[in-house]
Design a protein around this nucleic acid. Structure first.
Lengths: 104, 104
DNA sequence: CTCTTATTTCGTTATTTAGCTAAATATAAA
DNA sequence: TTTATATTTAGCTAAATAACGAAATAAGAG
């Protein structure tokens, strides 16, 4: 959960995800759309991979990234539901919050 | 947008929001439910305030925090809709992403 | 005014993050 | 093998973050 939100907290990474929404793209294709070095972009890709928000497919020398929309969707939905937001049946507010640490 | 996700990226802050979902609570009430100093918790509250996810009401010497659920809801929904997630009518993927910086 | 309580702010420290350049790796082509 | 291309990794710096204890602030009680 934290990893997803951390990934989404950076505008560059959000834009990468938006680009991948249109179609899968290689690391280079993505990188040239941003004013940062390829190394910096590679680090951003790593964060997105950590959060499991993208899949990477190595083909020869190029790596193609694609959006794992279902992971993003499930993550956001799961969080939203704990607040009774969105589709969920708005679980009663009485449920005491479990003050447990992440399953990390 | 970044500020909301940054606020949500920390598990302590997510738990604070969950607690506030039940009822408004003072800074002290909230703080005593966590294993951190009041100063540290105060900093977390500041981040939540920055993101406009909580309202603070000063009454005498105590400050009562309450969840601004609509801000959380609108924020998540707005983001989700750009991905065609959830309620939204799934806008066509053809829309080119605007590579603009945050309005911050 | 003084004391106590509630909360924040200040000053410090350790860790993480985002950016860079340069170097390493891996694959394909010649 | 050498060269070129695509990408990541390594090493660095500056800035941000999360934590602490101590000091400051604000307000009510005596």
């Amino acid at each position: 959960m934290s990893e997803i939100f951390k990934a989404l907290a950076d505008p560059t990474r959000r834009r990468v995800l938006q680009l991948l929404r249109e179609r899968p793209m290689t690391a280079g294709e993505l990188a040239e759309r941003f004013p940062f070095s390829k190394a910096t972009m590679s680090a951003h890709f790593a964060v997105l991979r950590e959060a499991d928000l993208v899949a990477s497919d190595k083909r020869g020398t190029t790596i193609t990234y694609s959006l794992k929309l279902s992971v993003l969707e499930d993550g956001l939905l799961a969080f939203a539901e704990t607040f009774g937001i969105g589709a969920g049946r708005a679980p009663a507010a009485a449920t005491t919050v479990t003050p447990r640490e992440e399953k990390g």
